[in-house]
């Protein structure tokens, strides 16, 4: 889900003849696509669910079930609903084509297919898919800062909690709030406030690790999700975020304005196995309030309800703490 890393397009061919899989793979080689084949409709659906390809080429006349049934299933499953389907039809009649399109297929190609036509139709379907994905991604992005938004955070915490539970890995959450933001806004204006929000976002993103998920939680509050990270290591990252923002200043009418943030961190491993998204956010929030109460520009951690100040000089050796 990292917005900067595009993945190679993958195509799944569901056709009862392996000769067709090989043929499609050879013909799409020039497009730089990864092509996989499945001869069985049932297994084709399972594979589509598991691997979420970017495009499915589906034969109408499959051996076990007919292709229309498979298409119906693909359009019912939430995991595969948005994957475009192109029907491979042997029929020259319009009936099959219309039926396929009515079931949600984006296009059809008649077999034996012309290679240039096949490539063009595949390109067109992938182009539409990319635009669709981009639109979906945009609904998860914050317009002002370009960070992931709260809607994305909520979804991502849910799925990361599942992973953390399954593999017994720690998941930490940092809540971060810009200090005295209202005063900054009132003194220097909202335009300056926006510049601060953007600058702090940029700094947080730059100082976080590649695997950390930096989001704008709302207003002047940010949430950073640290996967596979225990409390101590997370506290080190939080301190680094704090000092990076502290080191930065913003220019308002030839005046240097310094900005600071207060942070709070909590980790799933210290909060019990049945922890929910709300529990985790709440626990990190309580640590954040402690930082506000302690005079701001500092980090507190919440260890099973026991809230303490994190030493500003915390060293990276904290990473050596044992994994449970």
């Amino acid at each position: 889900m990292n917005p900067e890393v595009p993945k190679a397009n993958r195509v799944l061919v569901i056709d009862d003849s392996e000769s067709i899989h090989k043929l499609v793979a050879a013909r799409l080689k020039a497009e730089g696509l990864e092509v996989k084949g499945e001869v069985d409709g049932e297994r084709g659906v399972e594979r589509a669910v598991a691997e979420s390809p970017d495009l499915i080429l589906l034969d109408v006349g499959l051996g076990d079930v007919d292709g229309f049934e498979v298409c119906k299933k693909l359009k019912e499953e939430p995991e595969t609903r948005n994957i475009p389907v192109i029907f491979l039809t042997g029929a020259t009649g319009t009936e099959d084509k219309v039926r396929g399109l009515d079931l949600g297929a984006v296009d059809y190609v008649t077999k034996p297919f012309d290679q240039i036509e096949l490539r063009a139709r595949v390109r067109a379907a992938l182009r539409t898919k990319r635009l669709q994905d981009m639109l979906e991604q945009q609904s998860f992005l914050d317009g002002l800062t370009g960070l992931w938004n709260r809607k994305y955070l909520d979804r991502r915490i849910e799925s990361e909690l599942t992973v953390a539970r399954r593999y017994n890995r720690p998941l930490s959450l940092v809540m971060c709030d810009i200090d005295r933001f209202k005063i900054l806004n009132d003194t220097y204006g909202h335009l300056f406030g926006d510049i601060v929000l953007q600058g702090v976002s940029e700094t947080l993103r730059g100082s976080a690790r590649r695997s950390d998920i930096v989001t704008r939680y709302g207003g002047e509050e940010f949430a950073i999700l640290l996967t596979d990270t225990a409390l101590g290591a997370g506290a080190f990252v939080a301190q680094r975020l704090r000092s990076s923002v502290d080191a930065r200043h913003f220019d308002a009418n030839a005046e240097h304005v310094s900005v600071s943030v207060s942070l709070g961190i909590a980790c799933t491993h210290d909060l019990g196995a049945e922890i929910s998204t709300e529990n985790l956010i709440e626990a990190a929030d309580r640590a954040l309030y402690a930082s506000k109460d302690a005079g701001r520009n500092c980090v507190h951690m919440n260890k099973a309800g026991d809230i303490s100040l994190v030493d500003p000089d915390i060293g990276p050796d904290i990473f050596q703490e044992k994994r449970r």
Partner: peptide, 20 residues
């Protein structure tokens, strides 16, 4: 019928329109 159907679909694609 199945075999004929498969050969019809693949033949031309492999450059054998007579098979299709």
């Amino acid at each position: 019928q199945t075999l004929a159907h498969q050969l019809k679909g693949a033949g031309g694609g492999y450059g054998f329109p007579q098979i299709t």
